[in-house]
C-alpha cells in the first residue's frame, strides 16, 4: 500500500491511545480510494466501449449456436470467474445462459493440480468439456498467469471464442501472438482497483450480451 500514515504520528510507536485521528485518516483514505476506483471504472468502460460491444456480439453468436461459457482465474480472480458464471446462469434480468467456473470444483482442481501440475488445471478441463462453439473467459490482474495462457491456447485450438480480462498493460494475454481474441484491460497498477474495474467490465459485457441476444431474436 503506498499510503503510510506514519508521518502523521511522528512520536507514537506503541504509546498511541486516541483512535480519533486514525479513524478520521482512515475515512479520508477510503474516500480517496473510492474516487480513484470510480475514475478508473469510468475510464476503463469508456476506453473499452467498442471492444465490449464487439466481444458481446461474438459471445451472443456463440450462445445462439448452443455454446457455453467457461470461466477461470486464480485467487481473487477465481472468485470473479465464479461471480461471472453466477451472473450468466442466474441473471437479475434477461435470459439465463449456460456458464460454469472451472475453479469451483475442488475435487477436479486438486486432482489436476496434484497429478499433472497447476499450470494445466484449466486447460485439462477444457480438453474434457470444450466444443468449438463454446467461450473461454479468463481473469487475471497481471495478464501473465501460465495456467490461463495454457487454457486460452487449448481453447483457441478447439475453435472456442477466447476472452480475457487483464490489468496493468495487459501482460501476456494482450501481447503479440496471444491466443486471447478479445482482451479487455483495466489499465492500473493496483490489483484491487484493477479487480474493481474488471467487475464493471464483466457487468457491461453481460448487459451487452443480453442486448445482443434480445435484438437478434
Amino acid at each position: 500500500m503506498p499510503e503510510t500514515t506514519d508521518f502523521l504520528y511522528p512520536f507514537i510507536e506503541g504509546d498511541e491511545t486516541d483512535s480519533g485521528t486514525l479513524l478520521e485518516d482512515l475515512a479520508r483514505s477510503a474516500e480517496g480510494k473510492w474516487l480513484q476506483s470510480s475514475a478508473l471504472r469510468e475510464a476503463t468502460l469508456t476506453q473499452s466501449a467498442a471492444q465490449v460491444h464487439a466481444t458481446a456480439t461474438a459471445m451472443a453468436e456463440r450462445f445462439q449456436a448452443g455454446g457455453r461459457l467457461f470461466t477461470f482465474g486464480n485467487g481473487g480472480s477465481a472468485t470473479d470467474a465464479e461471480a461471472v458464471a453466477h451472473l450468466y446462469t442466474q441473471p437479475p434480468w434477461g435470459r439465463a445462459l449456460p456458464a460454469r467456473s472451472l475453479a469451483e470444483d475442488q475435487a477436479v482442481m486438486t486432482a489436476l493440480g496434484n497429478d499433472v501440475g497447476f499450470d494445466l488445471v484449466f486447460s485439462r478441463q477444457l480438453i474434457a468439456h470444450g466444443r468449438a462453439h463454446d467461450i473461454a473467459m479468463g481473469f487475471s490482474t497481471s495478464g501473465n498467469s501460465e495456467n490461463l495462457m495454457r487454457a486460452f491456447a487449448e481453447a483457441r485450438k478447439q475453435g472456442m471464442l477466447t476472452v480475457g480480462l487483464s490489468g496493468y498493460d495487459g501482460g501476456r494475454m494482450a501481447a503479440e501472438g496471444t491466443p486471447v481474441a478479445e482482451c479487455l484491460v483495466a489499465r492500473s497498477d493496483s490489483v484491487h482497483r484493477i479487480q474493481e474495474s474488471q467487475a464493471a467490465l464483466n457487468h457491461a459485457l453481460w448487459a451487452a450480451v443480453q442486448e445482443a441476444l434480445a435484438s437478434s431474436s
Binding site: 506503541g14 486514525l22 471504472r41 479487480q195 467487475a199 457487468h203 448487459a207
Partner: peptide, 27 residues
C-alpha cells in the same frame, strides 16, 4: 449489479485500512 461491484470495493478497502491500523500498535 452496482451493489455487487461496490461490495468488491468495500472489502478491498476493509483489507487496506485494516493493514493501515497495524501501523498503530498502541491503538
Amino acid at each position: 449489479l452496482q451493489a455487487s461491484e461496490l461490495f468488491v470495493r468495500i472489502y478491498h478497502l476493509l483489507w487496506e485500512l485494516t493493514h493501515v491500523c497495524f501501523e498503530h500498535p498502541g491503538l
